[in-house]
């Protein structure tokens, strides 16, 4: 068929990855001093920045404090310069509201919310550059920022997307692959307990293939976890050293 060949017969994707390979991941914890916790992640050309504030007193008229747990407030946004075309993105449009809600749900599942009643945790994520898998990058960045902020959670949340082309599931789909209109499954999961915190699907996928795709996505999450884990450990030990020095 004409059009882009997402997966060559030799088994390479357009950018040279094999079907089950993630994009290059680069990440950093604690990029801002201002916030309680922050992290920056690059998954290929998708770049996301997450900051976490709190837990603090519930402010503003937005939500009422809950007597038994903390309110998690997520805000997702895309930078004007994040896509090909420079575009002013108003706060609170449908897409970002939806994304924010998804993020909120995801993190309510893993943060130990009962520890901080009557307070609020703010998680702000911004996509600095979008190249597919925005939600995944956001979740991963936010997880790191939460760890950086020292907010207790049950487990990491790692997210990874996967697509399905020519009977082969692809891990960590890029924008180019996403835009071809094939099915994309996004999974956020707690890698240790293998619980799925969020499952999202774009376009149709036959139920027979779901298992395959899901497997690839969770494999991607675990790979992601390995990378994040190494970075967190490294960060903690470096912090420890710098504390000792000072």
């Amino acid at each position: 068929m004409a059009g882009l060949e997402l997966l060559s017969d030799e088994g390479f994707r357009l950018d040279g990855r094999r079907p089950s390979e993630l994009r290059k991941i680069r990440l950093r914890l604690g990029v801002f001093d201002q916030a309680d916790g922050s992290a920056y992640i690059e998954q290929g050309n998708t770049k996301a920045l997450a900051t976490v504030y709190g837990p603090h007193e519930v402010l503003g008229g937005k939500g009422k404090p809950l007597h038994d747990k903390v309110i998690i407030n997520c805000q997702y946004s895309m930078a004007t310069f994040s896509t090909n075309e420079r575009k002013n993105r108003p706060q609170g449009d449908r897409k970002s509201t939806e994304m924010s809600l998804h993020l909120q749900r995801t993190f309510e599942a893993t943060i130990q919310t009962h520890l901080y009643p009557r307070s609020q945790i703010d998680i702000f994520v911004q996509i600095l550059q979008a190249d597919g898998g925005n939600y995944c990058a956001c979740v991963n960045a936010a997880t790191l920022a939460i760890i950086n902020a020292g907010i207790p959670m049950k487990d990491y949340v790692c997210a990874c997307s996967s697509g399905y082309v020519n009977n082969t599931p692809l891990t960590d789909v890029s924008y180019l692959e996403e835009s071809q209109g094939g099915p994309v499954v996004t999974v956020a999961m707690l890698p240790k307990s293998e619980q799925i915190a969020l499952f999202k699907m774009d376009n149709r996928l036959h139920v027979d293939h779901l298992e395959q795709v899901l497997e690839v996505a969770s494999k991607g999450c675990k790979d992601m976890y390995a990378v994040m884990n190494a970075a967190v450990k490294e960060h903690v030990s470096r912090m420890a050293k710098s504390m000792e020095c000072s």
Binding site: P152, M153, K154, Y156, K192, S193, N229, K233, V236, S237
Partner: peptide, 23 residues
């Protein structure tokens, strides 16, 4: 160094202190 979700020990051997939870 441990990270969230990491298994630390059994409930029969330890109490949970700050930064840990039971499951």
């Amino acid at each position: 160094i441990c990270v969230p979700g990491e298994h630390l020990g059994l409930e029969s051997e330890y109490h949970t202190g700050p930064g840990t939870y039971r499951r």
